[in-house]
Structure formats: C-alpha cells, structure tokens
C-alpha cells in the first residue's frame, strides 16, 4: 500500500498547449494498491489533466514518440522509462519536440 505522493509535473515545448497552456502542475496522486510508476502516471494524466487531443500526447500506453520525458532533470531512458517508480517530491517534465522549427 503506497502513501499519497506529491509530484511536480511540467509541460513544455508546445506540450503545455494540450493542458490549457499551463506549464507547471503540482499534483497529489491518491493512494493505490500498487506503486506509482510512470505507466500509471500517464493514465492519471490522461484522465485528470489532459484537456484535448489525446493522440498528440499519448500513443498506446506511452507518450507519443517525439515527446521527451525528464525525471528529476534526467532523461527517462536512463531511469527505466515506463517502469520508473515515482517517489514523493519527484519532478517529471514532458517536452514536445514536435512543434515548429
């Protein structure tokens, strides 16, 4: 049984446009039976934060290719990607590379 987690989510590079233009979100994730990994976080974001055009943010159960994810300022590819287990006070940044040049 995991305790509620407070994490900071940040959207940039154009991804914030899918979240009413709001870049920073301080969120509390509710208690759930299993651990909070990024896979669960994405489902939570989809159900609670995302305002429009799901297909521009997600593909399958992951982020759409071309959206970079940083967990505590490090590339999620170094952190286990979807399997990373969130800790209290973690910072997760989503940056779209898909916008303009």
């Amino acid at each position: 049984m995991a305790a509620p987690l407070c994490v900071q989510l940040e959207f940039g590079g154009g991804a914030e446009l899918l979240f009413d233009g709001v870049r920073k979100h301080q969120v509390t994730l509710p208690i759930q039976p299993g651990p909070w990994d990024i896979r669960c976080l994405l489902v939570w974001i989809k159900e609670n934060l995302l305002k429009e055009r799901l297909e521009l943010f997600m593909q399958g159960d992951s982020v759409r290719p071309g959206i970079l994810v940083l967990i505590n300022e490090a590339d999620w590819e170094l952190m286990g990607e979807l399997d990373y287990q969130l800790q209290d006070q973690d910072n997760v940044v989503f940056i779209s590379t898909l916008h303009g040049g």
Binding site: S96, L98, G100
Partner: peptide, 9 residues
C-alpha cells in the same frame, strides 16, 4: 535555458 516559441502552425 534558451527561450523559444513552440506553438504549432
């Protein structure tokens, strides 16, 4: 920390 603009055309 570069400032750039990123709205889709």
């Amino acid at each position: 920390g570069l400032d750039y603009f990123s709205t889709e055309c």
